[in-house]
C-alpha cells in the first residue's frame, strides 16, 4: 500500500519541514514561558495552528505532485521502476500528512509539557478531540489541494487549467482568511465553535469528504500520463 524505500526517500526530501516544526515548537515554548498570560490557555480551544495548517495544506498540496514530482522528474523515475501508481500516491500523501498531523497536535504537546506551570481550562480529552477534528479537516484540505494541483497539471497545455486552479486557490485563501477572523469570535454559526460544541458531527463530516477527495485524486493519478 505504501512503498517503504520511497517513504524513506520522501522523509529525506521533507526533512526540512520537520526541522521547521521543531524550531516552531521551541519558539512556541519560549514565547509561552516568557510572555505567559493567564488568558493563554483559552487559545488552544480555538486551535491557533489550524488556520496556518489550512493555508499550508492547500498550497503545499497543490504543488506537491506538479512541482516536486512531475517537473522534478521523480515521478517518471519512480514509475519506471516496479512501483504501482497507488503505492506512489499513498506514499507521497502519507509523507505530506504526517507533518500536518504533527502541526495539528502541537497544542497537545504544549499542554502536556507545560501543565505544571499553567492552568488549562480545557480538559485534555477535549483538547485531543479538537486536535483530531483539526487534523481531519487539514487532511481534507490537503487532498483538495492535491486534486486542484493535479487538475491544473492535466490541463497545463491549455491556459485554462492553470487559470481555473489559481482562481480556486485564491477563492479558498480568501475564505480561510475570513474564517480566521470568525474563529476568534464566539457564535453558533462559525466553524470553530461548531467543533467545540458539536465535535462528533464535525469529525464525522470530514471522513466522507476525505474519502471522496482521496478517490478522485487516486483515480487521476492512476490514469495520468507521466
Amino acid at each position: 500500500m505504501v512503498n517503504g524505500p520511497l517513504m524513506k526517500l520522501m522523509y529525506k526530501r521533507f526533512a526540512w519541514i520537520y526541522w521547521f516544526l521543531l524550531a516552531f515548537l521551541l519558539v512556541g515554548w519560549g514565547a509561552i514561558l516568557f510572555f505567559s498570560v493567564d488568558a493563554m490557555p483559552m487559545h488552544f480551544e480555538k486551535h491557533p495552528f489550524f488556520s496556518m495548517g489550512l493555508f499550508l495544506a492547500l498550497i503545499w498540496g497543490a504543488g506537491i505532485f506538479t512541482r516536486e514530482f512531475r517537473q522534478g522528474g521523480l515521478m517518471e523515475f519512480v514509475m519506471a521502476r516496479p512501483v504501482s501508481r497507488g503505492e506512489f500516491f499513498n506514499t507521497v500523501l502519507l509523507s505530506a500528512v504526517i507533518p500536518m498531523l504533527v502541526l495539528m497536535f502541537m497544542p497537545v504537546i504544549y499542554v502536556i509539557t507545560l501543565y505544571p506551570w499553567f492552568d488549562f481550562t480545557l480538559p485534555l480529552y477535549r483538547l485531543l478531540l479538537m486536535c483530531l477534528i483539526a487534523a481531519a479537516w487539514v487532511v481534507v484540505i490537503l487532498l483538495l489541494g492535491i486534486n486542484i494541483g493535479l487538475f491544473a497539471a492535466a490541463h497545463s497545455s491549455r491556459r485554462y487549467g492553470r487559470a481555473v486552479s489559481t482562481f480556486i486557490l485564491a477563492m479558498l485563501v480568501a475564505v480561510f482568511i475570513n474564517m480566521n477572523n470568525i474563529i476568534l469570535q464566539p457564535g453558533p454559526a462559525n466553524p470553530g465553535w461548531i467543533a467545540l460544541y458539536h465535535p462528533l458531527p464535525a469529525l464525522a463530516a470530514a471522513l466522507p469528504a476525505a474519502g471522496l477527495l482521496y478517490c478522485l485524486g487516486r483515480r487521476r493519478v492512476d490514469r495520468m500520463d507521466i
Binding site: R13, G72, G73, L74, E76, A80
Partner: peptide, 9 residues
C-alpha cells in the same frame, strides 16, 4: 529502462 533525459529530483 533508461530514459532519454535523466531527470531525478
Amino acid at each position: 529502462y533508461q530514459s532519454e533525459i535523466q531527470l531525478f529530483y
